[in-house]
Design a protein around this nucleic acid. Structure first.
Lengths: 173, 173
DNA sequence: GAGCAATAATTGTTGTCGTCAATAGTTGTT
DNA sequence: AACAACTATTGACGACAACAATTATTGCTC
């Protein structure tokens, strides 16, 4: 049983314990070694993940997930949309839309109406209870957002929202 | 073949076409009907998704995914970490860490060293080629971020980054 | 107007991912 | 020496997203 501790290529003077590893400060001398959150894109990814988790936790008591909420929300802005459009605007696969609308229809939040123009298409509209649900959960959503944006003051939240909106408008959605 | 167009329950005076559906403006009269991106949390979710997609597309030519990148990045800040710590700090399941470190080890970007203190633990360290890879991909990451933050000016990007960082420090990571 | 490409919705399939439970080896405690 | 706690690992299961394939319908073309 070879118990030579320093047999490694490079010697590590203090023993590695949980304390001194997690607390080790970041060397910002090298430009590429700038900590985990130096890149705005990566930071956005992590925060988006966290935001999604919070939203999902808030919605799961209704049996719905974030994607359903996105569909409902979009329906509220258009008052009737084809599934093809839901797919294109929300960025989900057409096959995913099928299941989402199925669930919403099963809960009575949305309805599929046949299109008078094209018998292939179905027009998805928000039902009355769907509107009610959206109004109720919107309040919970605001609470989640408030929790997420805890350390920010109102003015800063406004600024953040405006900046994010500018980015979102550019890419897609 | 019944060709009655208005046989539906409620009459919709103009036919639903792709143009007037997608271009319909948002009625902001109702407080809960504020468009898709009125909520900052939901906006964060969508942008995080998009950012993750861009990063993944950028990394997939290396055979790695975003999770591997996160591990590499964290290793660069600590210079040696236990898998348990990777799991705790990055929020991934311990069993997920196993596969990720496996892949990184297979590519020569990281190495598992036995801990001198605890023979149960393995100390994961970034290898030289791992550092090189990180430096190279960091450039690509900046390019992606620049693409994502297209419409923003440098000062605005700085502001956005600072705000996001404040949020990230609060919750976790 | 018969044939044919294109389209909308749907189904099925595949691979990935996250979570949970279980195991082997190890450490510290009593 | 016996036992509880812990680290890494494996395996299994369900959820979910991306891609291909199918059905029904439409518009175009000759």
């Amino acid at each position: 049983m070879l118990e030579s501790a320093g047999s490694s290529t490079e010697p590590r003077e203090p023993a590695i314990t949980r304390e001194n590893v997690t607390a080790k400060p970041i060397d910002a001398h090298e430009p590429w070694m700038r900590g985990l959150h130096a890149d705005t894109g990566y930071l956005l990814y992590r925060l988006g993940l966290r935001s999604g988790q919070l939203f999902n936790a808030c919605l799961q008591e209704s049996g719905l997930r974030l994607r359903h909420y996105a569909v409902l929300r979009f329906l509220a802005t258009t008052d009737g949309a084809l599934q093809r459009e839901l797919s294109a605007r929300l960025g989900y696969d057409p096959s995913a839309i099928v299941g989402l609308v199925d669930d919403l229809e099963k809960l009575g939040f949305a309805e599929r109406h046949p299109s008078p123009d094209d018998r292939r298409s179905r027009i998805v509209v928000l039902s009355g209870s769907g509107r009610d649900f959206l109004r109720d959960t919107d309040e919970a959503g605001l609470r989640v957002t408030g929790e997420l944006l805890g350390p920010l003051e109102p003015a800063e939240r406004e600024t953040l929202h405006a900046l994010l909106l500018r980015i979102a408008e550019d890419g897609l959605n």
